[in-house]
Structures are given as structure tokens and as C-alpha cells.
Computed example of a mutant assay.
Amino acid sequence: MIRILVVDDDFNVSHIHSEYVSRVEGFEVVGEAASVAEAVQAVRAHHPDLLLLDIFLPDGTGLDVLRQLIQDQGDARPDAFVITADHDISTVRAAMKLGAVGYLVKPFSSADLAERLNAYRELHHRMDTLGLVSGTVATDQADVDALFSAVRPPAIPRVPVKGHSAPTLTAIHQALRTAGSALSATEAAELTGVSRATAQRYLTYLEKEGIARLELRYGATGRPEHRYRIAR
């Protein structure tokens, strides 16, 4: 089990996040903390693997927690997902510099958190497989790239000014990500409730941006069918 400490100054929000964690296989909440001081003490007491760390705390910030843990524990400190309503770029940059492995902006759904946690679990699995936990170094570039990208979900491209809408783009993107196989424009349209022509336009855009990959399925006669899947 991957052990998680939830840090949030709002008692109710902390419980909600703990409930979200409980729905994801392979994770358990070992404690909750509501301040910088409580978080540092709880890390020392419970030795979590991962923090769900709010930025705004009554006696400082989540960044202060990270700084204190770096000072106290160095490389032995737990990883952290920074969770906050603040999406100012300077805060994101500071969290990255302090070693945060993920960033979630409130409000988010249990599915959003589950996606990050499952990716984090995959990261641990890859590290075990490659022997990095015992100190060996991965020698393959693909392995290194996979480790660095494990907790970062596929990006959604910036929506063009004309001809596309963010909700539709997100819906098509989500349909591709959750599909068990490559989708045709007709199938994507049925899943998202848009017309086939609209689905085709968004699929083409995602393929152009490198988010989707085009596959050609050849039948007995006629033109090949265009099908799309998330690019890996």
C-alpha cells in the first residue's frame, strides 16, 4: 500500500480528499493535518509515501512544509501532490522547484485525483522494475522518459480561437483516453453526442497536435477507415 498524508486547513475538505483516496486501489490514508506544524509532525510520526498538500495553511503554506521536510529529511522526504485553489504560475513554479510531483487545482473530482494516484502507482512500479529503489540507474532513454512523465497525464492542446470549443475538445479527448481501442469519428460522435463531422474535425485537430494517433484500417474494398487513439 502507498501511504498518504492529507494536509488541508479545512476539516471537511480534508475528509473529502481522504474519501477520494479510499476509492483508489493500492492507497491508504495514514493521517490528516491542518497546519504546517501538524504536517511536519505527522510526516515524522507516520512516514507517508505521498502528501496531498494544500498551499494555504493557518501558520504558513504548503511550500513551507516542503522546505521544512527538505531541511529535515533531504531525499528521504515523501513525495507531494500540491492541491490548492491558487493556480498562479509563480506558485506552480515554486512547487516544482521544491520537488512536487503533481499539482491539482480545486475543485477537482475523485476521478481527477484517481488518475494522478494511478499514475503515481505506475511510477513506483516502474521504479521497482528498473531497480531504481535499490540505487541502480536506468540506462535506457525510454525508461527515463517514462519515469519523468508517469505522473503527468496526457496534455490537452490549447483551443484555437475559432472553430473549436473547450468543452467539446475535452469530451473528445476524454472519449479517446477511456476507449479500449481506437475510435472512428462515428464512434467518437456516439460517445460524446456531437455530429460525426464535428467529431472528425476535433479528432483531426488532436492528431495534428500530437495528442492522438491516426490508424488506418483497411477493408476488402474502398478507402481505409480512419481510427484514432491517444498517442503514447
Rank of each mutant, 00 (worst) to 15 (best):
V92C: 02
E225D: 12
K162H: 15
A39Y: 04
I83V: 15
L69D: 06
D143I: 07
R126K: 12
R44F: 11
V13H: 03
L191D: 01
G210V: 09
R223C: 09
D64S: 12
A220V: 13
D9F: 01
S90L: 09
V159R: 14
L113P: 01
E207L: 07
I2T: 14
I16K: 05
T136S: 14
R44M: 13
L132P: 02
A212E: 04
P107D: 10
H124A: 07
I16M: 14
A171C: 01
P78Q: 13
A111Q: 11
H124R: 13
G74S: 12
V101K: 05
G210P: 02
D49T: 13
M96T: 13
H15L: 13
R77S: 02
D128N: 13
A80G: 03
A94Q: 14
P153C: 07
V151K: 00
P160E: 15
D59C: 07
I55K: 05
V43L: 08
T204R: 10
N12K: 04
S165I: 06
Q200C: 01
V21D: 05
H87Y: 09
L66V: 05
S165L: 07
V13M: 10
A39G: 08
A197D: 11
G60F: 02
V133I: 13
T168V: 13
A155Q: 13
A142N: 14
L117M: 08
Q200P: 00
P48M: 10
R93D: 11
G60R: 02
L214K: 12
R116T: 00
H47A: 14
L123K: 07
Y228G: 02
V36W: 01
L169F: 04
V43G: 06
G60M: 05
D112C: 02
L63K: 03
Q200S: 15
V40I: 15
R93K: 15
R126T: 07
